[in-house]
Nucleic acid binder design. Structure first.
Lengths: 350, 350
DNA sequence: TCCGTGAGTTGGAACGATCCAAATGTAACC
DNA sequence: GGTTACATTTGGATCGTTCCAACTCACGGA
């Protein structure tokens, strides 16, 4: 719990130093720092001069201890190297920064074990809340024991497994997954494809299940049959998608198109196809999810569902800030719309 | 200095609660938490049971206050949405996490004003050190007044303007900029190009100046003249690079190739060329710097200098951890090698 | 019996801020 | 002159932990 890992810190100047330096009490200096109207103009000026002179730095940790408040928010994402999460984190940090909060960063690499460890470590620093994008297969029970029942949480992108009563009090920001992939699938069908696969992600993540459901919905609505081997599960990373590409073609009836869990997976699939001598956007149609910056620049440019991750980051931060302002407000669930962006990877059936 | 921005925090269980709960003193509980060999096995077991029972969470802020230590490190990057920095941040966070430190995130958007603000805010949270990738045009003097003279700093990627005595005590992790762009330029020359531009970045950043110098070196070594309008300055973002592309072709002697400040700029240039009806990798040769994931997947794939940003992140974190272990050690400057990766964007002169 | 020893435990003062009730000084009023 | 009102200022307790010197207790040796 209290593992050793700490850095020695140089003696800093404190409130008392300033107080002594200009012959007032600590309380007065404190009032000056917080811009209280109670202090006399003249005193204030003297104190402020002394603050500058000694190069005083406010110790927010001490203040937070006394006031039983917090001025940081923990942000836990799956993988910062995924541009989707990088943009999301940038949006979160931007908005939190404007509100005077600092972002404590943590990343899980889609491992629930690491998620537990990271949450445990972040919690000890006393954040005022958590923005969490759960790892695949993460359980509400475990997250709850790691962070306790009273810390505000905003869930992003995925639900946790195993519902609990407390869990209902958490705010959530989800993407419009099912309608999104349904739309993508319908787009492929409209372009003449009949044998369409769903590629990537693991079914123990709610986002994957929802996106898969949208695909199934569209297929059934169009009266199309789905072969079992058209569902290939992968870790949602590019590298694992490349590795898993061959599985798509192992059964009898070969697909001519695939709806992918996200852009990382879609870009991996494009690469995997290439290794089999297939060119995405000509021999095989691909759609993604997220619209990361790369999507518009890949070969071929990727048809995908735009999620505006930076805006989502700002939104998640706003949700948390709203919760801090009003802890009693009912839990809100926001479903952010997604938009189909058609590019060249979703070619018509040739 | 002490602006209001704080979240109410639920009453947490403390050392005293545990102590009361099992009839020992606070001091003993504290010893148990820190795994001291002084406490009796039997007592320890009782205390640990009580810790679990009450769901105790260690308050590291309070401990840090008393011990005058810190368990966080501030990481300030230019733009998290740039995959180069995202990977870098991921590497930093990874290594810091393993060492039991938590990462305080800040981002400047290449603005020195925001840099000052972000540093000021992060400092108040009492990090044990700072890893800083300076904004373009950032001055040592300003950074120094923002963070004080005694906090360990690792500079990454760029030098600050205006040297100061204290500044010499900071560790630095730089990229092998000049030899890198020299190599890239020589590569273009070897492929038959004679009219080669240097595109992107602003000359008030040291990294830009160095990369530009490498280019000049190679040109001069080959006896090639450089036209003034072949130097186009931009903010190192994709969007600004697109905007600035026309400037390359405004003078009399049109270039047939460009060495770019980084990959973001190179990808922007490719787009900008496209808008003029030029195809990079066929009508015009382009090289980048960084080798972000996108570089291998762009149209055409980008010839660039690989910097392995994630490894650089780990390295920066290691430098800072080493400094914390031994504050007296002489300041180290590490220059990370870069490697030319030849892809299709650097086509031979047609 | 007394003393020394070592293992285990503990009260109280820090750390640097904030809160609160109370003190101070001054001016105004009757 | 005495009282009240108001504007400022202030000591001391407090937040949750760690440090330190001191304490208790059982045991063994002289």
């Amino acid at each position: 719990m209290a593992t050793e890992s700490s850095a020695p810190v140089h003696r800093k100047t404190t409130l008392s130093d300033i107080a002594a330096g200009c012959g007032v009490s600590r309380a007065t200096v404190s009032l000056v720092l917080r811009g209280s109207p109670l202090v006399n103009k003249h005193t204030r000026a003297r104190v402020e001069e002394e603050l500058r002179r000694q190069g005083y730095v406010y110790n927010r940790a001490a203040a937070n201890l006394r006031r039983r408040t917090s001025s940081s928010i923990a942000l836990v994402v799956n993988e910062l190297a995924n541009p989707f999460f990088a943009e999301f984190a940038a949006g979160v940090d931007e908005t939190l920064g404007e509100a005077g909060f600092v972002t404590l960063l943590g990343s899980t690499g889609e491992s629930t074990t690491r998620e537990q460890a990271v949450l445990g470590s972040l919690i000890e620093h006393g954040p005022g809340g958590i923005i969490l994008s759960p790892a695949e297969g993460s359980e509400a029970r475990n997250v709850l024991t790691a962070i306790g029942a009273h810390l505000p949480v905003v869930l992003f992108n995925r639900e946790l497994g195993g519902r609990l009563p407390q869990y209902a009090h958490w705010d959530r920001l989800m993407l419009d997954n099912r309608p999104g992939t349904r739309q993508a699938t319908e787009h492929l069908i409209a372009r003449g494809h009949r044998r369409i696969a769903f590629f990537g992600g693991h079914d123990d993540a709610s986002s994957t299940r929802e996106r898969h459901a949208g695909y199934v919905e569209a297929m059934q609505a169009a009266g199309l049959k789905i072969e079992p081997h058209w569902r290939v599960q992968t870790t949602p990373t590019r590298i694992d998608a490349v590795r898993a590409t061959p599985a798509l073609f192992e059964g009898g009836s070969k697909p001519t198109a695939a709806v992918c869990y996200n852009d990382a997976v879609a870009l991996g699939l494009i690469l995997g196809l290439h290794q089999r001598g297939l060119q995405a956007g000509r021999d095989f149609a691909v759609t993604g999810f997220d619209d990361i910056a790369e999507a518009s620049m890949s070969v071929p440019p990727l048809t995908t569902l735009s999620t505006a991750p930076r805006a989502r980051g700002r939104q998640a931060a706003e949700l948390l800030l709203a919760r801090l302002r009003d802890p009693q407000a009912p839990a809100s669930t926001v479903i952010a719309p997604v938009e189909l962006v058609v590019r060249e990877s979703s070619c018509p059936l040739s």
